[in-house]
Nucleic acid binder design. Structure first.
Lengths: 399, 399
DNA sequence: AACTAACTTCTTTCACTGAATGAAATAAGT
DNA sequence: ACTTATTTCATTCAGTGAAAGAAGTTAGTT
């Protein structure tokens, strides 16, 4: 139930401050005159607000413009150091933190193991410690920290900050955001891990300035993130994007989730590895996807077939996404896309074959691998995105 | 590329006018004091704006409130006759028009056949004529007409008003909205037909006040409409919701779209009918879905099996929607849901079976049939929704 | 029964605030 | 002298909230 916004002077100011901030963020260094033209605000308003933003250190002077016949323009740009955020990727046995500035540049990266622990408050404490260590060792003022973003696998609600289900820790309805917040006294945002990556693409990656796009991750599982009207789609309760668990064949093998014939059970990395292992002696059986790729590169027909079949089925899954949602951009990412042409070429081929009637013509497809740092950076960008979010959108933080 | 909004006094006024209008629309008859409480606006602002809306005839006085110890409240309510809209469902051989008031009540319904014509400008002319006839015969002032909404099958772009592909007329990139607009001199909005129904559900049906939901229509084809954050999702180019053309079995039969194994080729009404016809003499072979249902009711095992199989596959399609998008509500509609328990029960069963891990717990499922009037009413509600839309959202009309 | 005073609540009025606006003034260069 | 960038400033107007005004009921009095 979205609440309506009430209009008053404060709102106007907030809108225009935000407008100028975003204008500068988008276009880089701009003069006040250029801001006036782009934002369509009056010169007076731009003058007053930019000077306010300069005193608040949100903007910086950055040299002068070219000579165009009169007084030179004073160029203004965003101060990336005006604030920072820590993004956390929480995994089964590791906590990965990334401290970024406003432009999402990683200033400090911190990767620490975690004891095999399941108790929510102990994990929250470990997480808060990792964040404090990251900040302390970075040299950045603690006061500049705008908030924390946490990304973790499973189903969680960003609105309430509750983890409804975590496959790693076996949690049910754990208020993780609250547990961390009371330790750090900062706004804490939480997201599905795929969504953090999606946000990162939306803000700083290929999805910049694109209204509607989808991110599909391939690895141990298959996930999906969705951007709709420049906003991250979060489903009703945060549970969404279970692309890996759509039914591919109702008569197929049992999946880890208990259902039969999930896409994941056919086409995710473990399925590919298992497929090759079955017909091999225990000695030279592949243990990781990289092993399979090595075999395929070495000419192994079975490994090539396994990768090709996985690719084809993934392509059908991607086609389902395109048919249902028709995004302008489809980003395929995750550890699994390193598998090279043996997997990716059949995937793109199947995507084309199974997409409805010319729908793909307007869809750009990008394949790119990721690493842990990208995920953590994405988690940090949740916080950054809130900072630049229009005041018209209700803030959904646990602040 | 969404443009940012600039804040000024006009915007404030527009926001608050809209806020009050929507407050009254939601809550029914309200006094100024009550509006003040709900909208959190100051008494002064409410007084001024409501009086402005009264002079503009957008609001009406509607009696007095109960005695609460002092002066009685003057109740205000929305004037449903402040404006009206015509919704058009454009079909292969018929034009169906519905003239509705602001509360989406149908004031006039007009159904007229169309010659087997394909030329865009002739069809646009016929459409404009049908609209004029509808308005003239309704007795409503022409000046009250706020706009036209057109719903038609195929792929069209609401932003530009261009029909990219129409299965009925074989069109490619026809600027239908423009063709109609120059004849009527009114804003013309266009949508996929399923989206018009979705909008109708969002504004006046089961989807009222629900942020995220999906509408799936079953009939000759299988379509889907999506509401995200209280907004209709329109994909990148308007082409979306092709649930009927996701691949169910890559080795399946050829679909009308040219692909193999589409959901539609397995589970839409024509597939059910064909399935039963094959094993019957030409004489008592069913020609419509109703024939099949009659056979099933009469005890025919084959008809029952055909319906059950169709239902099961539909259920898998619905599960795909839930797995990917996790809406709070799923509305199943269209002519095909009249098929009763032989089809619907297996469908719901399959939906449950193929949905990921408790994701369905929070999803409400509603099955309800529709008729042509509902579609046309939905098309009209596009216009109505624009009228009440927040001024913060860029209007995407061909106005 | 008629009238009045007291009281309560709803609605309007009005002085005030502050943000955008745009013209004019000022600054800063060639 | 000229051009362009930026600031200043009087003006406008929407929201704010206190106070005034309007409109009703109740209780007490005549």
């Amino acid at each position: 139930m979205s609440t309506f916004v009430r209009g008053n002077k404060d709102l106007i100011r907030a809108i225009n401050r935000n407008l100028i901030l975003n204008t500068v963020r988008r276009h880089g260094a701009l003069s006040r005159t250029q801001i006036t033209e782009i934002s369509r605000l009056s010169v007076g308003a731009v003058s007053q607000i930019t000077n306010e933003l300069l005193t608040d250190q949100w903007l910086l002077q950055s040299g002068e413009g070219d000579y165009t016949g009169g007084r030179r323009q004073t160029l203004l740009r965003l101060n990336p150091a005006a604030g920072c955020a820590v993004g956390v990727k929480l995994m089964e046995r590791r906590i990965v933190c990334a401290l970024t500035d406003l432009e999402s540049r990683v200033l400090r990266y911190f990767d620490t193991p975690m004891p095999p622990e399941q108790d929510p408050s102990l994990i929250a404490a470990a997480l808060a410690d990792a964040v404090e260590t990251t900040v302390a060792s970075s040299g950045v003022e603690r006061g500049k920290l705008l908030g924390i973003g946490i990304g973790l696998a499973g189903v969680s609600s960003p609105q309430t900050g509750v983890v409804h289900y975590s496959p790693f820790f076996g949690w049910r309805d754990v208020p993780l955001a609250d547990l961390v917040r009371v330790r750090l006294h900062l706004p804490v945002y939480m997201e599905n891990d795929v969504n953090t990556l999606t946000l990162s693409e939306m803000l700083f990656g290929a999805g910049r300035h694109i209204d509607n796009f989808a991110v599909v991750t391939i690895g141990r599982g298959i996930g999906m993130g969705l951007v709709v009207n420049q906003q991250l789609y979060q489903g009703a309760t945060g549970g969404m994007g279970e692309l890996g668990h759509i039914t591919f064949d109702p008569a197929g093998p049992l999946c880890t989730c208990g259902k039969r014939g999930c896409l994941e059970a056919f086409a995710a990395d473990p399925a590919v590895i298992a497929y090759v292992r079955h017909s091999r002696s225990a000695l030279d059986a592949p243990r990781t996807l990289d092993d399979v790729i090595a075999l395929a590169n070495g000419g192994d027909a079975l490994a090539r077939a396994a990768l090709a079949r996985s690719g084809e089925i993934l392509g059908i899954g991607l086609a389902t996404v395109v048919n249902l949602l028709c995004p302008s951009l489809l980003i395929v990412s995750g550890e699994g896309v390193t598998a090279g042409d043996y997997r990716i070429a059949p995937m793109l081929e199947a995507l084309r074959t199974h997409t409805f009637n010319g729908l793909l013509d307007d869809v750009q497809v990008i394949v790119e691998p990721t690493d842990d740092q990208a995920w953590a950076r994405g988690a940090a960008s949740i916080v950054i995105s809130k900072v630049f979010e229009s005041p018209l959108i209700e803030a959904g933080a646990t602040a």
